[in-house]
Nucleic acid binder design. Structure first.
Lengths: 228, 228
DNA sequence: TCGCAGACGAGAGCACCGCTCTCGCCATCC
DNA sequence: GGATGGCGAGAGCGGTGCTCTCGTCTGCGA
């Protein structure tokens, strides 16, 4: 059982991350100031360094939390009983909805990397949650016969085994071609959301909701997900 | 004709932007410091404010220059005599090549927006150059009969007239459906490049060059560009 | 041709930043 | 009960963007 000291330490740590998350949502990652976070929790700035060795470590904590929140939103939106094309669309909508609700957090996750280009390894499992959801949809669709049959051919140096395993599990009926197109659709999903959020669609896309649905439906077709 | 004072002013202005571009390439936009730029050109920091009213204005200048350089690369890679699918692939490769050669500049253009969310209006024409190239390929393909025939139906509130005009010109044979899918392919191109550059493909895509070619070919198929 | 407005560079200064170090305080463990 | 070590506060360092003032010198109009 944790001692009193450990308990208050954990409590203060989460109090700091909460304040940091609030500031991130307000001013964005670039303007997030460790000193301002310290002020908000009633500490002097140097005291925060007892809990986070640097501002970048605090940001890393926020990144992991962000991936987890986004992954949870995607998982909650997936109804395994629904037809695969509808599941794909629902998850895409959930990802976009989360991004629109948390633009600065999304930018922290999928915009320019903030700390000197080194994405910490700890973020990987949390970041994979959305991909795992999409992969499960693919696998279920293959089991139900809602994916085009493949030739079973494999290009061993193109995509890693782990990624292929995530994108549809070990179901042998899914062609590598389909899995690679799923990878493309996955990044296209984020390309679409990023363009909308970062303003590259201003002046061209007028109805964001309907354009997004159409684009994601086209992507479902590209993967080969049958409408059923 | 310009006076001596105007000449030296223009010269110093470009000297500042050159130094800023060098620093951008080295440390990235987030760490770009106006004072360091001033040091590099042998000025005191306050003197730079005679030329750029703020650090963000200096960044805006770099953004416009970046869009222009990227647009020029795309235009140079387009051979109007080649078959449309090959043209599409060549332009995509040129965009990716420029991004890999100038990662920080690309991040400045297509990553998280740096100044408080307000993309200056001046950047729009420069930013559109790549889209114009892709649109010209679409228009030429339609003229040559390399695009599927459309029904001519139109959804007036979905995408702006200007964007539709860019994506294939006034050629009536291009369906709105095709133009919307071209918009999707355009953002998917940037989604793919961003994922590669920002590290979201580490652990999954192993051969970046070949994956990119395959993805862009799939996108050409999505648009409907015939191989010929 | 002369004089003055205005452009210009330098310097000091303000408020803020990330981060380090030292110094008392107090809970915890031997 | 005393030593240890975690903790918060404070001062301080070098850096940042930006503002203001003050001499200087250029170039245009009278």
């Amino acid at each position: 059982m944790p001692t009193a000291r450990e308990r208050v330490r954990a409590e203060l740590t989460s109090e700091i991350t909460d304040a940091a998350r609030r500031q991130l949502a307000e001013v964005g990652a670039a303007a997030l100031s460790l000193r301002a976070v310290a002020r908000e929790v009633g500490m002097v700035s140097s005291a925060v360094y007892r809990y986070f060795p640097s501002r970048d470590d605090l940001l890393t904590r926020l990144i992991i939390d962000g991936y987890d929140a986004l992954g949870a939103a995607a998982e909650a939106a997936d109804d395994p009983a629904a037809p695969p094309r509808r599941r794909w669309l629902a998850v895409c909508r959930a990802v976009r909805g989360w991004a629109l609700a948390h633009p600065h957090e999304y930018a922290l996750l999928y915009g320019s990397p903030v700390p000197g280009y080194s994405a910490p390894r700890d973020t990987v499992p949390a970041a994979a949650r959305v991909a795992v959801v999409l992969g499960r949809i693919l696998g279920d669709a293959a089991r139900a016969g809602d994916l085009p049959a493949g030739t079973g051919e494999r290009d061993p140096a193109l995509v890693s085994d782990e990624a292929l395993a995530v994108l549809g599990g070990d179901h042998p009926a899914i062609d590598e071609d389909v899995r690679v197109r799923a990878l493309l659709a996955w990044s296209a999903l984020y390309g679409t959301i990023s363009f909308e959020l970062f303003g590259h669609f201003t002046g061209s896309v007028e109805d964001g909701d309907r354009y997004f649905d159409r684009a994601m439906t086209d992507l479902a077709g590209l993967i080969g997900l049958r409408a059923r």
